[in-house]
Design a protein around this nucleic acid. Structure first.
Lengths: 234, 234
DNA sequence: CGACGCCTTGACGTTTATCAACCCTCGTGG
DNA sequence: CCACGAGGGTTGATAAACGTCAAGGCGTCG
């Protein structure tokens, strides 16, 4: 499998600035694995034995609250790291990670992190850069939840997904994995009912096309107006 | 300034695991500064020239949105790092930091970070551990905003402040810096009106005592019940 | 002493969750 | 191959939670 993987991997931003031999040395210590749709990659509170690099597929990261609510923290796309608890001084995973579709990933034993970080400074710097942008994302999310109405938050979430995983089709830009109203609700802190109503309304206005576990954004620009609260109400 | 500072500093968790000479080497490269109440330590979008260690006082970290809302990200207490944008691959500060009271801090030029991190691995590990717990905090905040009602969030915020900066008094535990209804509103994503009503109601029930820019928690345990949604409505 | 900043409280309206009922469609097993 | 069942989606009615608007009080600092 080596060579196919390597060509896929070399261009990833996690490995930016690494010499080819270093890259081989790092990747050589990983095992590759596949995760079937709806199977967990890792689970909340579990011992963080490995960290992962998603090569193909999409993974949903979810936190469960004691009282049964589920909040989706983020979706992981190919090329992104996940489960890097160890780099942040944690010994357990902070959330559940579930394959939204069949996935392929590389996994490193967590105990390798200190050595890898010490030997390959640009690998470590790249990693912390993604940590930084996740912290940023989380704060953005807090701000959205604090200051925006539900329709704005849902619009923002759709646009983020489109940017992350959008795939051009004849009808518009499709979010490239199965996503339900419930999923969107868990990303935006609302209920599937409200999401359903919003999508219905937007479909009537020609902004989106949606179906069973499928959303296509037809007019990103108008959706952005809603996201920014600069759209007159219907 | 050396000796007085050093005894204060040696016990801080950021410096855990460092030899005394290493600590001197690190602290020796910092300059100490004082910030007057209501003055900025650093500002959003500004070039991140330095990172800081708060020695005394309290700093409020706030993000401003384009449309004029302000969201308080966190309060920094003595012993905590702030402005560590550089360690996360950013070149500008992500938020405003404002002294809630007169403060004392150490400041290192940001460009020292890579060398410090490389030379003192436990310093770097400690730093990333605090980054990890802030990421954690941010996610907790998102979850609270997604699943809890305003009264629960305000109760949680007060309890967090009490834990962070609580000072025992005869009447209960006092939050040890001036904090207005507006400030609490900005932490919890609500309005000063709602916070005022809640505090009034809680005061009637003997849970808290509050006055101008001052909150004392009298019965943390009952407040926790509210925070967890396990309290019957008045 | 006056004015500004902070706090309080009432009345009202909107947003959005909740409750309830129903439809559609896809996949599975008889 | 068809029937049916579960999971996903839609939509209406209702009500609660909370923001908004408005007015006024109180204390503190210049």
């Amino acid at each position: 499998m080596g060579s196919l993987d390597r060509s896929l991997i070399a261009g990833l931003s996690v490995f930016e600035g690494l010499a080819a031999t270093d890259l081989d040395r790092i990747v050589g210590q990983a095992r590759s694995l596949r995760i079937a749709k709806d199977q967990p990659v890792f689970e909340q509170e579990q011992e963080a034995h490995s960290f992962f690099l998603l090569l193909d597929g999409h993974v949903r990261v979810v936190k469960s609250t004691p009282d049964g609510h589920e909040v989706t923290v983020r979706y992981i796309s190919p090329g992104e790291l996940m489960g890097i608890a160890h780099a942040l001084g944690r010994t357990t995973y902070p959330a559940n990670a579930i394959a939204a579709v069949d996935c392929v990933a590389l996994a490193w034993p967590s105990h390798l992190w200190p050595t890898l970080a010490a030997n390959f400074p640009s690998f470590s710097a790249n990693t912390y850069k993604t940590v930084g942008s996740r912290l940023q994302d989380a704060h953005t999310r807090v701000i959205e939840m604090s200051t925006e109405q539900v329709d704005q938050r849902v619009a923002h979430a759709l646009l983020k997904l489109v940017k992350q995983t959008g795939k051009k089709t004849e009808e518009g830009i499709l979010i490239d994995f199965p996503i339900s109203r419930q999923d969107i609700a868990e990303m935006t802190g609302t209920t599937l009912h409200t999401v359903s109503r919003l999508l219905s309304a937007w479909e009537d206005q020609g902004l989106v096309k949606s179906g069973r576990q499928k959303v296509t954004v037809v007019e990103p620009h108008r959706l952005l107006l809603i996201a920014e609260g600069r759209a007159e109400k219907s």
